[in-house]
Amino acid sequence: MKRFFYILITILLFLFIFDKLTLLFVRKGNGYGTDVLDFYAQKNNSIDIVFLGSSHTYSSFNPYIIEDKTNLNGYDFATQQQPIWITYFYLKELLKYQDPKYVIIDVHMLVSMNSDYAYEQVNRDAIDKMRFSLNKISMINKCVKKDERAAYYFNIIKYHSRYKELSDNDYDTIFKGRTVNNKGYIALKYKNRIFDYDEVGINDDIMEIGKKSEVYLDKIIRLSKNKNYKLIFVKTPAIYSEVEYSKLNYINKYLTDRGEIFIDFVKKNDELDLDYKKDFYDSGHLDKEGSEKFSNYFVKYLKEV
């Protein structure tokens, strides 16, 4: 009996220390996109409206403005270049802790994802800090190539060599808890190029998107059936090329054929009154002023839906 007790103590201590070390060593991110730990720090069932997707999401939807105007507590649950399959697993993770009224998904990565697997950085940003669960395991199985999966199940395999560069920020994560609280929103300030609306390649052509993207789009639609929230697909303002826009046309058709709501804000420039010369950080991302204009407009639109 005593022996069994000590074996149990060893296993429990091992798991406890392993969990803390995993948190200590994991890369703490570059400040772009939602810090998943920050998402877990949100009070259960406190988020009313969630915005999923890539950097187009977290740089466009300003949850503070949206809350101010609608009283809906918003949250950008988005990571850079987030493919739709990660969005699907994020939605499942979200529904474990939150009961939102609106789920807004930006479709940018349906347009720009040309491969069945994202870059490692993209996967790492999205997956590393997720809590260990069946959802995380199936997410890794579907999003990561087979020979790389072990280092995602146990990300200490990837990050343990960071013992050489641990900083106060790393120790704070385990000893002081989360300090970041920005509702996932990133206000981009630096402008590195001036754009013009004429550069947007609006056209009527249709170009198919990747099959894996379609599969996960369908899964999101199925998952959202008979749920309490309203699912809305959007494309936030972006300066798309003709090819990109033809893919957006395909997505538009694909979703409306299935009875889903899709709003193309790329086309709504007149109503949005965006100044393309001032309101963009780059061709895909609104800057702080642009996102304020867009969020204000989105609130008006949300009231109409």
Partner: peptide
């Protein structure tokens, strides 16, 4: 686990912001 020489290795330069 901590000091072992294993795994794919970590290089911060892999994680520079992609611009998206």
């Amino acid at each position: 686990i901590i000091f072992g020489h294993y795994g794919p290795g970590f290089d911060n330069s892999q994680f520079i912001y992609l611009g998206y």
